[in-house]
Amino acid sequence: MSKGDQILDVRNIHMRFSSKGITVKAVTDVSFPVHEGETIGIVGESGCGKTTLGRCIVRAYEPSEGSVMYTTSEGELIDFLKIDKQTMKKVRKEIQMIFQDPYSSLDPRMTVFDIIKEPIVANYPKMPKAEIEQKVMDIAAKVGLNTSYLKRYPHAFSGGQRQRIGIARALVLNPRIIVCDEAVSALDVSIQAQVINLLHDLQKEFGLTYLFISHDLSVVEYISDKVGVMYLGKMVEFAPTKNLFEHPMHPYTESLLSAVPIADPTVQNERIPLEGEIPNPANPPSGCFFHTRCRYCTEKCKNAVPEYVEMEPEHYVACHRAQELKLRGFKYDE
């Protein structure tokens, strides 16, 4: 399989949580393709369902509907959500995850060595000890951990180093896809840059595919090839990064972009205000979910659900007026 082929096809994922008779649609009908070696950024505000989507894709949650078509390393096309246990055992290790909180994602009762070792032992129970040790050492060195510290417990490490341990654990099985759920959000700015650079280097070296979930638009813009914007459980726009940031086609994306604080006091971009508040996901509005807060709202938007269509090549958007509206994005250099 060569670089750039489609590796994952997320199709019509729905995720409903119900408790006490109330059903909340955390994710509604999300589809997008992922190509090998790409980084897909998923952005949105808290409660938009981006984390749930990520967890559905790695099958930490069982989605209510939909499929994740995955092309395995052997070139087989399977539905990751419906495979049997036997295949799952083989494929599981190819899709891994990096977590947001570097504190709760490492078991404080295990040494770093044991944490990184755990996935190997679970997948290759017969591997000799020396080989396991070698593998752990190699991967620890790769992510920039001092290998003489492996016998330490996680409490000996700072947030940034802990995140490196988490990355090492995710990488030790040689996965092809990694879902990074807010992987740098909890870190300090200077440490964020270190981890982003590390993720970048690892991608180059191993040809990894990232699904980068974050609320931080500037990080996503930096790291992603394509970006999907989510609102109230729906994917409202999906496009190549530059395309999306320069020419957003969904009014929500436009507002979101205008709200990003720029680290330059001379640039005072005018914000496009969002009216009202995010509606209750248990009781979403009719028609277009965004119509209650959209400044371009028409009668049609209130009644008909807009379709999620490829408006321009590779630029998907779910808005009735996407064609006619001229929305404002960022000005790119050059």
Partner: peptide, 25 residues
């Protein structure tokens, strides 16, 4: 300089790597 350099500014996709400060506090 490190702090400002390690924050990516949208619209300037020129740098290959983010500037980062070595080590930890």
């Amino acid at each position: 300089q490190g702090l400002i350099g390690s924050v990516h500014k949208i619209g300037t996709k020129t740098q290959e790597r983010l500037f980062s400060i070595e080590g930890t506090v």
